[in-house]
């Protein structure tokens, strides 16, 4: 009987929440384990993407072409709020994974929903910030500083926007199909993605905003 639980994960395909679901449903199938491994390799590639954008920004950040510099532009209070929202959303996505290990679908959907809302709040602050900067004469094409700033911070914001869309769709899928060995790896991998976006933001608020404010 217990062999059904552990070594024949395909028997669970299409089931909703069931007691027979394995303990770590995200790792119960080879497909699930490969998905997680492949996602880590993708995150390695993401490191390269953001690393190059950081390198370009740090190289060009003083080339303001007479326009406003980071010292004049950056508002640390706004950045602190954005940081707090994103950090908290990273914690709530951990709670979603813990709810998944408890096999509580409603709780997973609840915590993923909170994660999406906090992410949307972060994105709202960023859009407000960019809108404000453009009115101060700091735009994508105003200087090398502008181009490298919007490329780096904008790429991160685009990742947040994509994550919001992705996790929202996963909530819909959970609602329709329940927690299975097929949906579990997707939830796990989306949480990895969300944490990674938060880790990138740690370096953005440090290297772009805090160091930029000091000149």
């Amino acid at each position: 009987m217990s062999s059904v639980t552990h070594s024949d994960p395909h028997a669970h395909h299409g089931h909703g929440v069931g007691e027979e679901l394995p303990h770590e449903p995200e790792r119960a199938t080879l497909e699930g384990r490969n998905k997680i491994l492949g996602f880590w390799l993708f995150l390695g590639g993401e490191c390269v993407l953001f690393g190059t954008l950081f390198a370009v920004y740090l190289t060009l950040r003083n080339s303001t072409l007479g326009g406003p510099s980071g010292v004049e532009l950056f508002d640390l209070v706004l950045v602190a709020w954005a940081t707090f929202l994103l950090l908290t959303s990273s914690l709530t996505s951990v709670f979603a994974i813990q709810a998944m290990h408890m096999k509580n679908v409603k709780q997973i959907m609840f915590w993923l929903g909170i994660t999406v809302l906090l992410g949307a709040g972060f994105l709202g602050l960023e859009i407000y910030e960019f809108y404000h900067y453009v009115h101060e004469g700091h735009s994508f094409s105003s200087s090398a500083f502008g181009t490298s700033f919007y490329s780096l911070v904008g790429f991160h914001g685009a990742h947040v926007a994509f994550g919001i869309l992705w996790i929202s769709l996963l909530i819909v899928q959970l609602w329709k199909k329940g927690l299975t060995v097929v949906t579990a790896p997707k939830i796990y991998v989306s949480a990895l993605y969300w944490h990674f976006i938060d880790v990138v933001w740690v370096f953005i608020f440090t290297l772009v905003y805090l160091m930029g404010r000091m000149g």
Partner: peptide, 16 residues
């Protein structure tokens, strides 16, 4: 995987 990504990223940073 991620350590290799960090390695390439840090190389780009150092070069820049």
């Amino acid at each position: 995987g991620i350590a290799f990504g960090f390695f390439v990223a840090l190389t780009c940073l150092a070069a820049g």
